[in-house]
């Protein structure tokens, strides 16, 4: 099972869900499969789960899906304890575990050894934790999470490998503005402040 095939299997099920992607190839794969202003591509290794938590807590009526990786989550294991304690029912935390630092030439991560991230999530207090190893299991697990309206942790054991997609044509600032404008419009909130011109004020004498 490859990550790109997993993403391709679930992309048709997405409507207005918000997505946070991990650093690395997953951002390009997801942007190619589901180009949408509700995708936020994080340029940081480790904080995907935390960004998704902040978003899920801020918008409890919107479904938030995190596409995390094993190398990233290993940098931020404590976030699992925080997420489980906050228990946002609108968050689905998916970890594509390829057991290596794929974007850094493939050295093994701790999950290539003894570490089991699903066991860590369970130990931190996640009630809904599933480990999947086939495409059918992955799609079914995702659909179960989507229908459940509860916090889910899905560990997808994948082979290393990158989908044949072009580089996503979005830089970080552009991605932020598009995402924020989309949230402002779809949630009817004002996030970016703007300053009125003073040209209409009376002139000083």
């Amino acid at each position: 099972m490859k990550r790109y095939d997993c993403l391709r299997a679930i992309a048709p099920h997405f409507g207005e869900e918000l997505v946070v992607t991990n650093l690395g190839a997953v951002r390009h794969e997801w942007q190619a499969l589901r180009p949408h202003h509700g995708n936020y591509h994080l340029q940081n290794l480790g904080l995907t789960s935390s960004m998704a938590l902040g978003l899920a807590l801020a918008l409890p009526r919107r479904r938030v899906v995190a596409f995390d990786g094993d190398g990233s989550l290993l940098l931020n294991l404590g976030s699992l304890a925080t997420i489980a304690n906050r228990h946002p029912k609108n968050l689905i935390h998916i970890v594509f575990d390829n057991e290596c630092y794929e974007s850094s030439r493939g050295a093994p991560t701790a999950t290539a050894g003894q570490a089991d991230l699903a066991a860590v999530a369970r130990g931190c207090g996640f009630a809904n934790v599933i480990t999947v190893k086939t495409l059918v299991e992955f799609e079914q697990g995702f659909l179960r999470a989507l229908k459940s309206k509860d916090l889910y942790f899905i560990l997808a054991k994948v082979e290393a490998g990158v989908g044949d997609v072009p580089a996503a044509a979005l830089d970080s600032q552009e991605n932020k503005y598009l995402f924020v404008r989309y949230i402002e419009k779809s949630e009817n909130v004002k996030i970016l402040s703007s300053t009125l011109s003073r040209a209409g004020e009376p002139r000083a004498k």
């Binding site: 904080l47 789960s49 935390s50 902040g54 801020a58 949230i183």
Partner: peptide
């Protein structure tokens, strides 16, 4: 972790 959570919360308004 808190910086990441705050950034996500900002994006959510």
């Amino acid at each position: 972790e808190g910086i990441g959570i705050c950034a996500g919360a900002y994006l959510g308004g």
